[in-house]
């Protein structure tokens, strides 16, 4: 499992699926399985699952207005001990990014959204970046260094 212990090793994956809420669990479990080769702690895995869930849910609800005919794309890249994850859609895009990033702000208060998605992604990851174009879609880029359990034994 620890083929990537060499700092220069790289690996990557790409995943595409329909914008259906059933696929939120599929997406976070799949990304977690991919990152497992870095031997992350349970806490790190939970953080990754949570941010994937947030990003995919955003694409489904806000990008595609719950229309299941949209496509969500996740790609992930491992370089040494760092994982970079992109979650993108070709949906509505975000009109006001500053506003969207405010904690507790939601454009859909009637749907009981908590407005915490971006705040969680920013807090749980080392790097977080949003690129969005109204009418064209949104891409989230997130990066995290995996401390790795094996570091505890060295």
């Amino acid at each position: 499992m620890n083929d990537l212990s060499n700092k220069n090793q790289t690996n990557h994956m790409k995943l595409q699926f329909a914008s259906r809420s059933e696929n939120e669990a599929f997406a976070r479990v799949t990304v977690a399985a991919f990152v497992s080769q870095l031997d992350p702690t349970m806490d790190e895995l939970t953080d990754l699952k949570t941010v994937i869930s947030e990003a995919v849910t955003n694409s489904i609800i806000h990008g595609y207005d719950n229309n299941p005919s949209g496509v969500v794309t996740i790609s992930a890249e491992i370089v040494g001990e760092e994982v970079t994850i992109y979650v993108s859609d070709e949906g509505n895009g975000i009109e006001d990014l500053e506003m969207a990033r405010q904690p507790l702000y939601t454009s859909k208060p009637d749907m009981e959204r908590s407005g915490m998605g971006f705040t969680i992604m920013e807090n749980f990851m080392d790097e977080f970046e949003v690129n969005s174009e109204p009418g064209a879609g949104t891409t989230i880029r997130m990066k995290k260094r995996i401390e790795s359990k094996k570091a505890l034994y060295n």
Partner: peptide
């Protein structure tokens, strides 16, 4: 075993 911000909302 798992919760995200949708859980907070509900």
């Amino acid at each position: 075993s798992f919760m995200d911000s949708s859980g907070l909302g509900v």
